[in-house]
Design a protein around this nucleic acid. Structure first.
Lengths: 359, 359
DNA sequence: GCTCATTATGCATGCGTATGCAAAGGCAAT
DNA sequence: ATTGCCTTTGCATACGCATGCATAATGAGC
């Protein structure tokens, strides 16, 4: 007869050793019972499983990761958790990672110090990969991560001249699409409202927009700096556009949340959308589909981006340390009712509410 | 002369041992240099710091936590990352935890299986605490967590009859406030739109609302089940209210996002807010302050709730395993312009836009 | 100069698991 | 019965760090 209650050391933790004693086998056997590829008999596996269930044993992944050198944790650094774009991105990515058996360690970089301050903390946790959706990335950081062989992927952002992988929507092409769309609706007096001045996303959308306008012989376009991707910044930028006297008939905001702020501002000043002014955005956040806004925008290929991120992190078994590459995924122009034909020419009264309603 | 490049085993990882060899000291010394309370000379501390910097050494918190039995990781389980209420909660809580040196391991429970499916995974990570903002919590779970001495706090939710801590806004009192407010504006034909039928938040707001109406002699109130906390559900619920023929003059939605969906629905049907109908919500998400909606609502005491959660988790040094308690924090009624005096009596034309504008 | 108290450092061990190696057992073919 | 192969299990060790204990170094007081 064995000792049925081996003395544990006070801690509520139940270890593989406890289960082993219970079954009169070695700790190795318990370990193997939880490792799919290990050599163990079907019978023993069942005995271990039932004993584990009975005792409430769960393998300690922290201890495991000491040996395997994998934590199955991916760090996600997000700058602006207020912007629905980033919360959507976070949601999609977290679900995708969870589906791959990875966990999400969330870092908000909006705090003082930004990325530089949190990178050390983050690396201390031995994360298997880092996804950065914000903030400036310095070459120092890249070097440190490369040295530790921790894969880093920039999401919806890229930093030229740095050896780092990036996944992003094709912002230049998105800008071009918007230019074509607005011009073909007959608009000529156009404006672009930029986001953060240093963000590649905003710059690329602007460049695509401007260059495509030039193709159509439109060489002038008002550029309004909003300063940041937020409702308030979009609102204020729209007010400035209206005060300028030379009110455009079509405005491309660098992001949906700014466009929505802009729409509210235009409407507050009595303008009708799209009759008096057409507004388009970028991202296709859930908000954009609401009937109040019904915003024409470029849809971010969320799922594909998440898939790409996971692939570029190279976390799935056969992981080869890839070279840094930048992947651009095209977005799709989603036509809703915030943009319509130029009111001066061929005004179509039904255009405003044609595609109205929840969709 | 010492060996300047001690052979490391291929891995990019730099350990305390490496730093120790570099300085010709023991690994213990390196460890102590990073432990604030350890006994070590100021001089040595500096030497270690500079050597660590030079080699790029960072303590491995995973290895550390094996000994200390603390990971400084808190799991946050969120059901609905689409609802701005939850993303706001996540943001506030993450920032608060980061400020306390804790990290956030994010779990989305919207996936199949719900909380039951992710709890084991979560516990495997030896998290120091669990914050649950969604999903049903069974007494089994509570028992398992209690056995492991892992503190659990329900946020914005509680489950009666279970020994578990909870932090929540005072939903009953919030419902009462709304009842008083609407009645004093002269409304008599009122409706309540509920969220998830099993959620304590929705039920409590409803109960507070109904019981306070009764105090004013109003015994009838239409209850409309929206089914879930979402824009679409609010929209549809509002449509149903209008189809019922007996259109109320004041509607209390159980959450902001539903109220906003409802406002869009009412407006789509030609109603003017608050002239034809008053709408109020609950939460005070950022959206609610936008001029388009300018939603009167009960402000969730975000920061206080986050503080309470951290306190109840008992993660700060002097941690005594507290008994399970439920803490209710009162919210504040935020008056905006989505609710106004009953249109039949004393119509005040300026009331609609009085508090309009960004705030 | 000597003793004692104090501080600073090294040694050894353990946290809970994975895994290479050896040993044992089972089975089929000879 | 013997051999050889394959499967299953145990043993021992390592992962990177914290920490109790022993020891060396330092300084104060006489």
């Amino acid at each position: 007869m064995k000792v049925s209650k081996p003395g544990r050391r006070g801690s509520g933790r139940i270890t593989a050793e406890d289960v082993a004693r219970r079954l009169g086998v070695s700790q190795s056997t318990i370990s193997r019972a939880f490792s799919p590829s290990a050599s163990i008999s079907e019978n023993m596996k069942k005995r271990v499983a039932s004993a584990a269930l009975e005792l409430g044993y769960q393998p300690n992944v922290i201890a495991r990761s000491l040996i395997t050198r994998r934590t199955d944790i991916v760090a996600i650094v997000i700058g602006n958790l207020v912007d629905p774009f980033y919360t959507t991105l976070l949601r999609i990515l977290t679900e995708r990672l969870q589906a791959s058996g990875k966990q999400t360690l969330l870092f908000s970089s909006s705090q003082a110090g930004g990325l530089d301050a949190i990178l050390p903390t983050l690396l201390q946790y031995q994360v298997d990969g880092i996804v950065i959706t914000s903030a400036a990335v310095s070459s120092d950081m890249v070097r440190i991560c490369a040295k530790r062989e921790t894969p880093v992927v920039l999401l919806n952002r890229y930093v030229p001249g740095i050896e780092i992988s990036a996944v992003s929507c094709d912002n230049v092409e998105g800008g071009r699409q918007m230019a074509r769309y607005l011009v073909e609706l007959g608009h000529e007096r156009l404006a672009f409202v930029s986001g953060q001045p240093d963000a590649s996303t905003s710059l690329d959308r602007q460049q695509g927009f401007i260059s495509e306008l030039a193709q159509y012989g439109i060489s002038s376009c008002v550029i309004e700096q909003a300063g940041e991707y937020s409702y308030e910044a979009g609102y204020e930028a729209a007010l400035r556009l209206m005060r300028s006297g030379n009110v455009p008939d079509g405005v491309f905001f660098a992001s949906d949340i700014m466009a929505i702020g802009g729409m509210d501002a235009f409407r507050a000043k009595g303008l009708s959308i799209p009759h008096d002014i057409s507004v388009v955005g970028f991202n296709d956040v859930p908000l954009a589909a609401w009937p109040t806004y019904s915003l024409t925008t470029v849809r971010h290929p969320w799922e594909e981006m998440a898939d790409s991120v996971v692939e570029m992190l190279g976390l799935d078994a056969g992981a080869t340390p890839k070279k840094a590459t930048t992947q651009l995924i095209p977005g799709a122009l989603i036509q809703r009712s915030s943009a319509g034909p130029r009111s001066g020419q061929a005004p179509r009264p039904f255009a405003r509410s044609a595609r109205h309603g929840p969709q």
